[in-house]
Amino acid sequence: MIRLPRWASRHLAALRALAVLTVVTGVLYPLAVLAAAQLPGLDDQAEGSLIYDSDGDVVGSSLIGQSFTDGDGEALLEYFQPRPSAAGDGYDPLASGASNLGPESVVDALPDPALGWDGDENAAKSLLTQVCERSFAIGEREGVDGSRPYCTPSGGTAVGAVLGVYRSEGTSGEVVRAVSLNEECGTVEAPFIAAYGGARVECAAYGEDHSAAVVTPIRGEAPAEPAVPADAVTASGSGLDPHISPAYAELQAARVAAERGADERAVLQLVEEHTTGRFLGFMGEPAVNVVELNVDLDRAFPLT
Protein backbone atom coordinates (compact mmCIF):
# COMPACT_ATOMS: atom_id res chain seq x y z
CA MET A 1 0.00 0.00 0.00
CA ILE A 2 1.40 3.32 -1.05
CA ARG A 3 1.40 5.88 1.72
CA LEU A 4 1.06 9.48 0.55
CA PRO A 5 3.29 12.14 2.03
CA ARG A 6 1.71 14.12 4.84
CA TRP A 7 1.54 17.32 2.78
CA ALA A 8 -0.20 15.50 -0.10
CA SER A 9 -2.81 13.88 2.19
CA ARG A 10 -3.61 17.30 3.69
CA HIS A 11 -4.11 18.85 0.25
CA LEU A 12 -6.31 15.93 -0.80
CA ALA A 13 -8.47 16.32 2.31
CA ALA A 14 -8.80 20.04 1.59
CA LEU A 15 -9.90 19.31 -1.99
CA ARG A 16 -12.51 16.81 -0.77
CA ALA A 17 -13.86 19.39 1.70
CA LEU A 18 -13.97 22.02 -1.06
CA ALA A 19 -15.90 19.66 -3.35
CA VAL A 20 -18.45 18.76 -0.64
CA LEU A 21 -19.01 22.38 0.43
CA THR A 22 -19.32 23.48 -3.21
CA VAL A 23 -22.08 20.96 -3.80
CA VAL A 24 -23.88 21.78 -0.52
CA THR A 25 -23.64 25.58 -0.52
CA GLY A 26 -23.33 26.22 -4.26
CA VAL A 27 -25.91 23.73 -5.61
CA LEU A 28 -28.15 22.08 -3.01
CA TYR A 29 -28.78 25.16 -0.84
CA PRO A 30 -29.65 27.52 -3.76
CA LEU A 31 -31.97 24.86 -5.21
CA ALA A 32 -33.67 24.45 -1.82
CA VAL A 33 -34.19 28.21 -1.53
CA LEU A 34 -35.52 28.37 -5.10
CA ALA A 35 -37.96 25.55 -4.36
CA ALA A 36 -39.17 27.26 -1.18
CA ALA A 37 -39.64 30.51 -3.12
CA GLN A 38 -42.13 28.79 -5.42
CA LEU A 39 -44.51 27.98 -2.56
CA PRO A 40 -47.87 29.78 -2.64
CA GLY A 41 -47.62 33.03 -0.71
CA LEU A 42 -43.88 33.35 -1.29
CA ASP A 43 -43.67 33.21 -5.08
CA ASP A 44 -44.78 36.82 -5.62
CA GLN A 45 -42.12 38.21 -3.29
CA ALA A 46 -39.47 36.00 -4.84
CA GLU A 47 -40.27 37.42 -8.25
CA GLY A 48 -39.80 41.01 -7.01
CA SER A 49 -43.37 41.82 -5.91
CA LEU A 50 -44.11 43.00 -9.45
CA ILE A 51 -47.17 45.07 -10.32
CA TYR A 52 -49.00 44.50 -13.61
CA ASP A 53 -51.37 46.84 -15.43
CA SER A 54 -54.64 45.83 -17.09
CA ASP A 55 -52.72 44.75 -20.22
CA GLY A 56 -50.50 42.41 -18.22
CA ASP A 57 -47.41 44.60 -18.56
CA VAL A 58 -45.05 45.10 -15.61
CA VAL A 59 -45.35 48.70 -14.39
CA GLY A 60 -43.33 48.53 -11.20
CA SER A 61 -42.80 46.84 -7.87
CA SER A 62 -44.89 47.19 -4.75
CA LEU A 63 -41.62 47.57 -2.81
CA ILE A 64 -40.26 50.62 -4.68
CA GLY A 65 -41.97 53.97 -5.09
CA GLN A 66 -42.26 55.94 -8.31
CA SER A 67 -42.56 59.59 -9.27
CA PHE A 68 -45.79 60.52 -11.05
CA THR A 69 -44.61 63.62 -12.88
CA ASP A 70 -44.46 65.01 -16.41
CA GLY A 71 -41.36 65.70 -18.51
CA ASP A 72 -40.72 68.94 -16.61
CA GLY A 73 -40.92 67.25 -13.22
CA GLU A 74 -44.33 68.72 -12.41
CA ALA A 75 -46.85 66.57 -10.55
CA LEU A 76 -49.44 64.81 -12.72
CA LEU A 77 -52.64 66.02 -11.09
CA GLU A 78 -54.65 62.95 -12.11
CA TYR A 79 -52.48 60.72 -9.90
CA PHE A 80 -51.82 60.46 -6.19
CA GLN A 81 -48.39 61.85 -5.42
CA PRO A 82 -45.80 60.00 -3.29
CA ARG A 83 -43.59 61.50 -0.60
CA PRO A 84 -40.32 63.20 -1.64
CA SER A 85 -37.33 61.01 -2.45
CA ALA A 86 -33.63 61.71 -1.89
CA ALA A 87 -32.55 58.63 -3.88
CA GLY A 88 -30.77 60.01 -6.95
CA ASP A 89 -33.21 61.98 -9.08
CA GLY A 90 -36.03 60.30 -7.18
CA TYR A 91 -36.75 56.66 -6.34
CA ASP A 92 -33.52 55.42 -7.95
CA PRO A 93 -32.81 51.91 -6.54
CA LEU A 94 -29.13 52.31 -7.44
CA ALA A 95 -28.85 55.45 -5.29
CA SER A 96 -30.94 54.50 -2.28
CA GLY A 97 -30.38 56.84 0.65
CA ALA A 98 -31.53 59.87 2.58
CA SER A 99 -30.49 63.52 2.48
CA ASN A 100 -28.77 63.06 5.87
CA LEU A 101 -30.09 66.46 6.93
CA GLY A 102 -31.33 66.63 10.52
CA PRO A 103 -33.47 68.94 12.67
CA GLU A 104 -30.58 71.36 13.13
CA SER A 105 -30.42 72.01 9.38
CA VAL A 106 -32.26 75.35 9.42
CA VAL A 107 -29.88 77.82 7.70
CA ASP A 108 -29.51 77.95 3.90
CA ALA A 109 -26.22 78.37 2.08
CA LEU A 110 -27.43 81.21 -0.13
CA PRO A 111 -26.51 81.28 -3.82
CA ASP A 112 -24.45 83.84 -5.67
CA PRO A 113 -27.09 86.33 -6.97
CA ALA A 114 -25.45 86.18 -10.41
CA LEU A 115 -25.84 82.38 -10.58
CA GLY A 116 -29.00 81.59 -8.63
CA TRP A 117 -29.93 78.30 -6.98
CA ASP A 118 -29.54 76.27 -10.17
CA GLY A 119 -26.18 77.72 -11.14
CA ASP A 120 -24.30 77.92 -7.84
CA GLU A 121 -23.03 74.47 -6.86
CA ASN A 122 -22.07 75.73 -3.41
CA ALA A 123 -25.61 76.83 -2.60
CA ALA A 124 -27.75 74.47 -0.54
CA LYS A 125 -31.19 74.68 1.01
CA SER A 126 -31.59 73.59 4.60
CA LEU A 127 -33.99 70.80 5.53
CA LEU A 128 -36.28 73.40 7.10
CA THR A 129 -36.50 75.45 3.90
CA GLN A 130 -37.08 72.30 1.82
CA VAL A 131 -39.95 71.31 4.12
CA CYS A 132 -41.40 74.83 3.97
CA GLU A 133 -41.22 74.93 0.16
CA ARG A 134 -42.86 71.53 -0.20
CA SER A 135 -45.63 72.35 2.26
CA PHE A 136 -46.34 75.66 0.51
CA ALA A 137 -46.47 73.99 -2.93
CA ILE A 138 -48.68 71.10 -1.75
CA GLY A 139 -51.02 73.53 -0.01
CA GLU A 140 -51.48 75.42 -3.28
CA ARG A 141 -51.96 72.19 -5.25
CA GLU A 142 -54.52 70.72 -2.86
CA GLY A 143 -56.28 73.96 -1.97
CA VAL A 144 -55.41 73.94 1.73
CA ASP A 145 -53.32 76.04 4.10
CA GLY A 146 -49.71 75.01 3.50
CA SER A 147 -48.27 77.03 6.37
CA ARG A 148 -46.13 75.35 9.03
CA PRO A 149 -44.41 76.49 12.23
CA TYR A 150 -40.99 78.09 11.60
CA CYS A 151 -41.83 78.73 7.93
CA THR A 152 -42.56 82.01 6.19
CA PRO A 153 -43.78 82.89 2.68
CA SER A 154 -40.98 84.44 0.66
CA GLY A 155 -40.59 85.29 -3.01
CA GLY A 156 -43.51 83.18 -4.24
CA THR A 157 -42.54 80.15 -2.15
CA ALA A 158 -41.55 79.65 1.49
CA VAL A 159 -38.32 79.48 3.50
CA GLY A 160 -37.31 78.72 7.05
CA ALA A 161 -38.13 81.62 9.34
CA VAL A 162 -34.74 81.89 11.01
CA LEU A 163 -32.90 84.88 12.41
CA GLY A 164 -29.22 85.35 13.13
CA VAL A 165 -29.29 87.37 16.35
CA TYR A 166 -26.24 89.33 17.51
CA ARG A 167 -26.14 90.14 21.22
CA SER A 168 -24.01 92.53 23.19
CA GLU A 169 -22.43 89.73 25.26
CA GLY A 170 -22.05 87.17 22.49
CA THR A 171 -24.75 84.66 23.35
CA SER A 172 -26.49 86.83 25.91
CA GLY A 173 -27.27 90.47 26.55
CA GLU A 174 -29.19 92.98 24.47
CA VAL A 175 -29.97 92.38 20.80
CA VAL A 176 -27.78 94.69 18.74
CA ARG A 177 -28.47 93.23 15.29
CA ALA A 178 -30.82 90.70 13.66
CA VAL A 179 -30.59 89.15 10.17
CA SER A 180 -33.15 86.96 8.37
CA LEU A 181 -30.65 84.27 7.37
CA ASN A 182 -32.72 82.59 4.65
CA GLU A 183 -33.99 85.73 2.91
CA GLU A 184 -31.36 87.05 0.54
CA CYS A 185 -31.28 90.76 -0.25
CA GLY A 186 -32.72 91.39 -3.69
CA THR A 187 -35.15 88.47 -3.53
CA VAL A 188 -37.53 89.96 -0.96
CA GLU A 189 -38.94 93.44 -0.45
CA ALA A 190 -38.52 93.14 3.32
CA PRO A 191 -37.71 90.42 5.89
CA PHE A 192 -40.62 88.39 7.29
CA ILE A 193 -40.60 90.42 10.51
CA ALA A 194 -39.60 94.05 10.87
CA ALA A 195 -37.88 93.93 14.26
CA TYR A 196 -36.63 91.53 16.91
CA GLY A 197 -35.69 92.42 20.47
CA GLY A 198 -35.69 96.11 19.58
CA ALA A 199 -33.37 95.74 16.57
CA ARG A 200 -34.44 96.18 12.96
CA VAL A 201 -34.29 92.90 11.03
CA GLU A 202 -32.09 92.93 7.92
CA CYS A 203 -32.10 90.69 4.86
CA ALA A 204 -29.08 88.42 4.36
CA ALA A 205 -26.27 89.63 2.11
CA TYR A 206 -24.54 86.98 -0.01
CA GLY A 207 -21.09 86.07 1.29
CA GLU A 208 -21.55 87.67 4.71
CA ASP A 209 -20.39 85.54 7.64
CA HIS A 210 -23.01 85.13 10.39
CA SER A 211 -21.23 82.46 12.42
CA ALA A 212 -21.09 84.83 15.40
CA ALA A 213 -24.88 85.18 15.47
CA VAL A 214 -27.22 83.10 17.60
CA VAL A 215 -29.41 81.05 15.24
CA THR A 216 -32.99 81.72 16.32
CA PRO A 217 -35.95 80.03 14.55
CA ILE A 218 -39.21 82.00 14.77
CA ARG A 219 -42.32 79.89 15.21
CA GLY A 220 -44.81 82.30 13.68
CA GLU A 221 -48.61 81.95 13.79
CA ALA A 222 -49.06 78.74 11.79
CA PRO A 223 -51.31 76.06 13.35
CA ALA A 224 -49.63 73.47 15.55
CA GLU A 225 -51.15 70.71 13.37
CA PRO A 226 -50.44 71.64 9.73
CA ALA A 227 -52.98 70.72 7.05
CA VAL A 228 -50.18 69.11 5.02
CA PRO A 229 -49.00 65.88 6.75
CA ALA A 230 -45.35 65.41 7.71
CA ASP A 231 -44.78 62.50 5.30
CA ALA A 232 -45.78 64.75 2.38
CA VAL A 233 -42.78 67.00 2.98
CA THR A 234 -40.08 64.60 4.18
CA ALA A 235 -38.30 61.73 2.43
CA SER A 236 -37.96 58.23 3.86
CA GLY A 237 -34.61 56.86 5.03
CA SER A 238 -34.18 54.71 1.92
CA GLY A 239 -35.68 57.20 -0.53
CA LEU A 240 -37.60 54.24 -2.03
CA ASP A 241 -40.61 53.89 0.29
CA PRO A 242 -43.78 53.59 -1.86
CA HIS A 243 -46.11 54.37 1.04
CA ILE A 244 -47.80 57.54 2.25
CA SER A 245 -50.05 58.12 5.23
CA PRO A 246 -53.83 57.76 4.83
CA ALA A 247 -54.08 61.45 5.77
CA TYR A 248 -51.95 62.48 2.78
CA ALA A 249 -53.90 60.18 0.46
CA GLU A 250 -57.21 61.60 1.69
CA LEU A 251 -55.90 65.13 1.20
CA GLN A 252 -55.31 64.35 -2.50
CA ALA A 253 -58.57 62.52 -3.17
CA ALA A 254 -60.64 65.58 -4.13
CA ARG A 255 -58.06 66.74 -6.68
CA VAL A 256 -57.65 63.28 -8.22
CA ALA A 257 -61.42 62.77 -8.43
CA ALA A 258 -61.90 66.14 -10.12
CA GLU A 259 -59.15 65.47 -12.66
CA ARG A 260 -60.66 62.11 -13.57
CA GLY A 261 -64.31 63.17 -13.43
CA ALA A 262 -64.92 60.56 -10.75
CA ASP A 263 -66.95 60.60 -7.57
CA GLU A 264 -64.76 61.61 -4.62
CA ARG A 265 -66.40 59.03 -2.35
CA ALA A 266 -65.49 56.27 -4.82
CA VAL A 267 -61.88 57.48 -4.91
CA LEU A 268 -61.77 57.56 -1.10
CA GLN A 269 -63.13 54.01 -1.06
CA LEU A 270 -60.24 52.97 -3.30
CA VAL A 271 -57.82 54.64 -0.87
CA GLU A 272 -59.37 52.68 2.00
CA GLU A 273 -58.98 49.41 0.09
CA HIS A 274 -55.26 50.11 -0.31
CA THR A 275 -54.71 51.12 3.31
CA THR A 276 -52.79 48.59 5.38
CA GLY A 277 -52.94 48.59 9.16
CA ARG A 278 -50.24 48.28 11.78
CA PHE A 279 -48.09 45.15 11.63
CA LEU A 280 -49.38 42.65 14.21
CA GLY A 281 -51.87 45.31 15.22
CA PHE A 282 -49.45 47.54 17.11
CA MET A 283 -46.20 48.04 15.14
CA GLY A 284 -45.79 50.94 12.71
CA GLU A 285 -48.50 53.15 11.27
CA PRO A 286 -51.29 52.60 8.70
CA ALA A 287 -50.03 53.28 5.18
CA VAL A 288 -51.16 53.50 1.55
CA ASN A 289 -49.06 52.06 -1.29
CA VAL A 290 -49.14 54.86 -3.89
CA VAL A 291 -47.92 52.73 -6.81
CA GLU A 292 -50.58 50.05 -6.28
CA LEU A 293 -53.22 52.71 -5.67
CA ASN A 294 -52.45 54.55 -8.91
CA VAL A 295 -52.48 51.33 -10.94
CA ASP A 296 -55.93 50.46 -9.60
CA LEU A 297 -56.97 54.08 -10.11
CA ASP A 298 -56.31 53.70 -13.84
CA ARG A 299 -58.34 50.50 -13.88
CA ALA A 300 -61.31 51.94 -11.96
CA PHE A 301 -61.32 55.45 -13.46
CA PRO A 302 -59.40 55.37 -16.76
CA LEU A 303 -58.34 58.67 -18.26
CA THR A 304 -60.31 59.65 -21.34
Results as ranks from 00 to 15, higher is better:
Ala32His: 12
Gly102Ser: 14
Ala212Gln: 15
Phe136Gln: 00
Arg265Ala: 15
Ile244Trp: 00
Tyr52Gly: 01
Arg3Thr: 14
Asp298Phe: 10
Arg265Ile: 10
Leu77Tyr: 06
Tyr166Trp: 13
Arg141Phe: 01
Leu21Cys: 11
Leu31Met: 14
Ala258Asp: 14
Leu63Val: 11
Val58Asn: 07
Gly160Ser: 05
Arg167Cys: 10
Ala262Thr: 12
Gln269Asn: 15
Glu121Gly: 15
Val176Ser: 09
Thr152Val: 15
Ala300Gly: 06
Val267Asp: 06
Gly71Ala: 14
Arg167Tyr: 10
Pro217Thr: 04
Ala35His: 10
Tyr79His: 04
Ser147Met: 05
Asp89Leu: 11
Ser168Val: 06
Thr157Glu: 04
Ser85Asn: 05
Leu12Lys: 04
Asp298Thr: 07
Tyr196Lys: 06
Glu74Arg: 14
Pro111Lys: 01
Leu63Thr: 13
Ala8Asn: 08
Tyr29Glu: 11
Arg141Gly: 01
Ala123Met: 06
Val201Ile: 07
Ser62Ala: 15
Glu208Asn: 11
Glu225Ala: 14
Pro223Ser: 10
Pro302Gly: 11
Pro246His: 04
Ala124Cys: 02
Ser126Trp: 01
Glu202Arg: 08
Ile64Gly: 00
Ser180Gly: 14
Asp53Val: 07
Gly60Leu: 03
Ala262Cys: 12
Asp118Lys: 04
Ser85Met: 08
Asp108Thr: 00
Thr275Ser: 12
His243Ser: 08
Pro226Asn: 11
Leu303Ser: 12
Asp298Glu: 15
Asp70Ala: 05
Ala13Gln: 12
Ala32Pro: 04
